[in-house]
Write a protein that binds this DNA or RNA. Structure first.
Lengths: 147, 147
DNA sequence: TTGCAATTGTTGCATTTGCGACTATTATTG
DNA sequence: CAATAATAGTCGCAAATGCAACAATTGCAA
């Protein structure tokens, strides 16, 4: 039993993050099931609840979802009647994405549910710890840009 | 532009974790490429460097990898000549997994590389912050057990 | 303006993934 | 001991994924 390797393994920041991240996703998936959304789709819906009329490119960039995946997620949401693609006023190759009325109805529950999952996982930490966590993680994120 | 939704989205603990986790994996994948390992396989190799002679079940449990995936990862590592399956002394349905000599050679670089990736991502934080982070995340993990 | 490069979005196709069924073996129960 | 349940590991197959090529359009430069 190699103690040195064990220490590296047990203290691995990346491993820790991955484990927690997967558990959050699993729990989120459970709670989203009722609304017909999934971990794949909810992120784009959340962004649309925040701001509509973005292009697919923009949606993909802001949610860090690759283009081909954005296309498919929107296909799926469109089929569910939650969003619609509208033509861009000046560019014929871009689409502007809007929530349908049915999509807008998610505003009543979805954001609160996301908040809820996060809070539940952070239950072990007090307010100060949470602030520190958020701060440190945000700092780490911005110091390690996407490629 | 819905400010309330925006706040929830931007402060989302789960989203933050996922983004960082994916970036770490991406960087790790790059560095692992040279050694013929991948994010899929390195975790089990790391565990074997720490302790050999575990069953596939045990390997899967400790790395949180499902059984069918463990089988496939070991198939792959076996084909690369890095591990070997040996019969369990008392149970004919279990295998005990050992590193080959070639597998053992990874001890010289792999743990250090993992350490390196973690350190690089934590570069933005000083020692105190790192301690706090590790502590808080470990607490969160244990308070939210796997299913 | 014409030709070339870049952008937006979509899709075909091969690879990867995960569920569930399956084999073989071992443990348990009556 | 026989019958049944539980366990370790594997595998087929459908679905999900990612790459790379593609069509359509727009921007840019000579």
């Amino acid at each position: 039993m190699d103690k040195k390797v064990r220490k590296i393994r047990e203290n691995s920041f990346g491993l820790l993050l991955k484990k927690i991240s997967l558990r959050i996703e699993k729990e989120l998936e459970r709670r989203l099931a009722k609304s017909g959304l999934s971990v794949k789709t909810f992120g784009i819906v959340m962004l649309l609840l925040e701001e509509e009329g973005l292009t697919q490119k923009e949606l993909g960039t802001r949610t860090e979802v690759p283009g081909y995946s954005t296309t498919r997620v929107l296909d799926s949401l469109e089929k569910q009647g939650l969003i619609q693609r509208r033509p861009h006023p000046t560019s014929r190759r871009a689409n502007l994405i809007y929530l349908t009325e049915k999509g807008q109805e998610l505003r009543g529950q979805l954001p609160m549910m996301i908040q809820g999952v996060n809070d539940d996982f952070l239950a072990a930490c007090n307010q100060d710890e949470r602030k520190m966590l958020q701060g440190a993680l945000a700092k780490i994120l911005e110091q390690n840009p996407l490629d």
